[in-house]
């Protein structure tokens, strides 16, 4: 290329690259900060784990009663909520959502917080049976009002713990 040609277009190239690079950088930082600070998905009822599990000292297993005998932890049915909330603040507006759900025979449409990819077969039962605290994966739920996913469940997250605790590390253990 001729020097005049370069001299003519290089400032433009610099401008375009510089601007787009700066924009990309800002966007990237914004996404990372946002992911870090995001308080987790909103829920149809502003249920507070801090209030129930920490202040009132209810066991995790009281509500998530399937966690030690099933792959899934089990979300409590509306009836279980109402067991207490029929008498405790029954007129509180969010509790009315529970009554409404009960009358319609539906569950509460909770939003999923913790996501494991669909090609991973995670089983709560074996992990609880081996004596792992819920907090090891889920973080300090007892002190969260709105729950957020504490750790990204990447394969490294699982494999590190499996190695440290002699868990299986063959592919078939999680990917079937």
């Amino acid at each position: 290329m001729d020097p005049e040609f370069i001299a003519r277009w290089l400032p433009w190239l610099r401008r375009i690259l510089g601007t787009s690079g700066a924009l990309l950088g800002v966007a990237g930082v914004a996404v990372l900060v946002g992911m870090r600070l995001h308080p987790g998905p909103t829920q149809p009822i502003p249920f507070s784990h801090r209030l129930h599990a920490e202040l009132k000292g209810i066991s995790c297993l009281f509500c998530h009663s399937e966690v030690d005998r099933s792959a899934h932890p089990g979300m409590p049915p509306v009836e279980k909520c109402l067991l207490c909330h029929n008498v405790i603040i029954p007129e509180f507006e969010p509790i009315q959502v529970l009554h409404q759900a009960k009358r319609e025979g539906k569950g509460v449409p909770w939003n999923r917080v913790n996501v494991v990819p669909d090609f991973v077969f995670f089983n709560h039962q074996i992990h609880v049976a081996r004596g792992f605290d819920c907090g090891q994966c889920h973080g300090d739920i007892r002190n969260m009002d709105r729950v957020k996913q504490e750790h990204r469940f990447t394969m490294g997250f699982c494999v590190d713990c499996h190695k440290a605790n002699q868990g299986p590390t063959n592919c078939q253990a999680c990917h079937r």
């Binding site: 490294g156 997250f157 494999v159 590190d160």
Partner: peptide, 12 residues
């Protein structure tokens, strides 16, 4: 990009 060899969060 999982096919590429680089240190990654999958520890694999």
């Amino acid at each position: 990009y999982w096919l590429l060899p680089y240190p990654n969060t999958r520890h694999l």
